[in-house]
Each structure stands twice: as C-alpha cells, then as structure tokens.
Computed example of a mutant assay.
Amino acid sequence: MTDEIVRARFWPRRISWLTIVLVLLALGSFVAIARPSSYYPMPMGYGEGGGSRGVVEDSVSYSPPSMPSKPMYDMGATNGASMAPQGMPGREAYYPYPYPGQDVPITDTREFLKVNYNAEMRTRDVGGLVRRVETTVRGYDGRIDQESSSPKYGYVNFAVPMSKYDAFRTELEGLVDSRFLTLNISSQNLLPQKQSIEEQQKQADSTLADYKAARQKIVSAHTSAAQSLQSQINADEQQLTSLRAQPQTVEVQAQIQALTNEVITLRARLSNENASYSAQLKNADANIKYAEDWQKAVKTQDQALLDNVATVTGSVSIQWISLWEMAQLYLPGYWIPTIFAVLAFLSLLYDRRRFGTA
C-alpha cells in the first residue's frame, strides 16, 4: 500500500507525448548500439590500439635488375693469352646477383623510405569530395592513376612527389574533420635493396675492368707474336735474295729451298696467328659489351629504386555517411541513449510540475 502511494505521488497525472517519444528514442538508440550486427563507426582516437592514425610496416616488392644475356663463350686460342682473366665469369657464368639481405649493419644509417598512404574519408557529398581530392593531388604535381565515384562510394588512387608529401598530406587531411578520417600509412626502408645494387655495381665495374685488361693482353701478345714472325720472314727473304745473287751451285740451291720452305711455314703461322687474334678480339669485345650492358642494367635499377623512393603512392576511399552515423561519431558509445534517457527524465519531472501527481 505504501509503494502504491509513493508511485502515485511520483508519477504525474498525465504523461506528455514528448516524454513518451524521448523514452522510445532512448530505448531505440540503446538497442541499435547494443546490437552486434549493427554498424558502428569509430571516430579517430577510439577502438583497439587507441587510435586510427598509425604507421603500419608493410613489405615493398623488389625485383632484381633485368640483366643482359650471358656473355659470349670464350674461344680457344693457339697463341696469345686466354680470353677470360683468372677468377672471372667464364663461358658458362651468369651475372652474379647478391640477393638483398634482411640484416643491415647499424653502421649504415641511410634511409630510403618507400611510403604508401591510404586514407578513408566519410562525407555526405561523395562526388564533391572526390573532385576535391583530385584537385589536391594535381595541385601538388601528383598523378591520378585510378578514380571512381558513385552516390555512396568513391575511390582515388594517386602518386605524389615525396618532396611535397608533407604539405599534400596536411591539405588532404584538412578536407574533412578528423572524426571522419581514418589513416593507414606504411613505410619501409629499401636500404637492403640499395646495398645489393651497390654491390652489383662494384662487381660490374670490376668485371668490366678485367675484361678490358684481358683484351689489352690479347692485343699485346698478338703484336709481339706477329712482329716476331714477320721479323723472321723478313730475315729469311733477305737471305734468299742474297743467295739468289750467288752462283747457283748445288749447295746454294739446297739452302734456297730450305729457306723457301721456312718462309712458307712462317707465313702460315702468321696467318694462323692473325685468324686466332681476330677470333679472340671478337670474343673480347663481346665480353666487354656484356659487362657494359650489366653496368647499365645496374644503373637503371638504381635509378628506378631512387625514383620509387621519391614517389609516394596512395589511395583515398570515400564513403557516404548517414546522419545517425554522424551522431554516433560525435557522441560515441552509449552517450546518445543516455542523453535521451536524461531528457526523458527531465520531461517527466516537467510533466509532474505541469499536470501534478495522482
């Protein structure tokens, strides 16, 4: 009996529609937030990890430099030096390729950071925000690689210079409030790849120097051998001229025949030496061309790596947001049903004052 009297004194004689609506809104918003299947946007600074702004380490693919084909085979030589210097790649050797290691000494503090920028924005005007993002990218000398736009979703894939990345990021992130922005920025130091390229550059330079030295050795050996043979031929021909001027006795004729045979043999050896030299020189030039192509390939790869580091690639995805989702971003958690419940209680108190109690 006492409880009934207390309830009668607390409840107003009449409950207004405003109080009823506020109670229904409090219950409805509580159920909507508490349902596990309902989508609940998380603003910046909420959720696991304490925030959405973060740097995530991500792997960046690295392809080895495109090397030229194998060097020319070394041809055998009857005279002169061997084509390939000792310790150098021979006829069956490919380009040596040191794969990038993962353990970089701390003494090398260089940084070749490849940055990938990804942002998710939410807005009521998807098309307008897509156009503003494109304008921002182009305003910082960037490039649009892919773009799509619809009433509910938009996407922009872009690339901008690393030198303008900080200013670009500041302006881009200022297009929306931080509550409607989620960032995922990944970066990786390509120092192992850079060290690998530098090691290849050293090997290419050393190989080219060895091939050029081997070519010079072939030229020197051929010059010496050819001069020696030609000198012997000239001496024999002079002696033949002298013998032919003498009375042609049996002994003189025998000497002439012997010298003639020796001159024929020496000329054959000289011809073989010239042919062997021509083949060796052709092979030496092919090996030098091989080393020069390797050198160019490494330089091209090095420039490609530097260009890759100097370019920030990224994407911005844009999603439409409803008014209810916006309210949840401004009032996260159970703030909305709590506010409706407080307003409903205040309205109930006003109804008691307005209509009195039973």
Score class of each variant (00 low, 15 high):
A291M: 01
D307R: 07
D58G: 15
L323R: 05
L191Y: 00
Y40H: 12
V60I: 11
S59L: 11
A235P: 09
G76R: 12
R122L: 12
L183I: 05
G128M: 08
Q146K: 13
A327L: 04
P12I: 06
D351E: 02
Y165P: 05
D210W: 02
L329G: 09
R143L: 15
Q295G: 08
K194I: 04
M72A: 15
I5L: 14
A341C: 09
N118R: 12
T182I: 06
S317D: 04
Q253T: 11
P43N: 09
L323S: 15
E4L: 14
G128H: 02
L113Y: 04
V23D: 03
Y165M: 06
Y73A: 15
I321S: 00
L348F: 02
Y277A: 13
Y153S: 14
I197D: 04
V176D: 07
M72Q: 09
G174C: 09
R244W: 04
Q246N: 12
P151S: 07
S206D: 14
L208H: 10
S150N: 06
V126G: 01
G87E: 01
N272T: 13
K296R: 14
Y99D: 14
A213Y: 03
E199D: 10
L18H: 03
N274Y: 01
P105D: 08
P65L: 05
T249Q: 03
A204E: 03
V250A: 15
V156C: 03
V342N: 07
S224K: 11
V130K: 00
D145K: 11
A275H: 01
K299P: 05
L229V: 01
L175C: 04
S38N: 15
T249D: 12
P89M: 06
E4A: 15
A304E: 07
L208P: 05
M75K: 14
S59K: 07
S196C: 08
L18P: 00
Q201L: 13
P192D: 02
N283R: 06
V126S: 02
S163R: 04
E48F: 11
L270G: 09
G87K: 01
